[in-house]
């Protein structure tokens, strides 16, 4: 399924809704979205992943890139990721560096 991403920036939070399949082709689109917010005073990056069906290491690299590009103050939230994508985050240890949540704002 084709990858789509929608970004909304509200105050210091960037919310991105990802859907479809995130591979090394679509990761270029994701990275471009991150680059667009990199120069803004963003503290939180919220990624809604309920409809994201696939994520390769290219997607993981954009997560790493976003923290390195925006800065260590950036908190990343991953909302409602599917089980197999969570599995990838856990295997690669990235779950230690992001906040995995069922809803946002976190109650």
């Amino acid at each position: 399924m084709a990858f789509t991403i929608q970004t909304v920036v509200e105050e210091q939070t960037a919310k991105m809704t990802l859907a479809g399949e995130l591979d090394s082709l679509s990761a270029r689109v994701f990275q471009t979205e991150i680059e667009k917010i990199a120069n803004q005073p963003i503290n939180e990056l919220v990624l809604f992943m309920e409809k994201l069906d696939f994520m390769s290491s290219a997607g993981l690299r954009v997560l790493i890139f976003s923290k390195q590009k925006v800065g260590s103050h950036l908190s990343i939230y991953i909302v409602k990721a599917q089980e197999l994508i969570l599995d990838t985050l856990e295997k690669t240890g990235l779950h230690h560096s992001v906040n995995i949540v069922d809803e946002y704002p976190v109650l």
């Binding site: 290491s57 790493i64 923290k67 390195q68 990838t88 230690h96």
Partner: peptide, 21 residues
């Protein structure tokens, strides 16, 4: 490597790791 924070991470090597795993 897998327990490093995102700031410290190198960007390569994860793909092959996921393949073998």
């Amino acid at each position: 490597d897998l327990t490093q924070t995102l700031e410290e991470r190198e960007i390569g090597g994860l793909g092959i790791f996921l393949t073998i795993n």
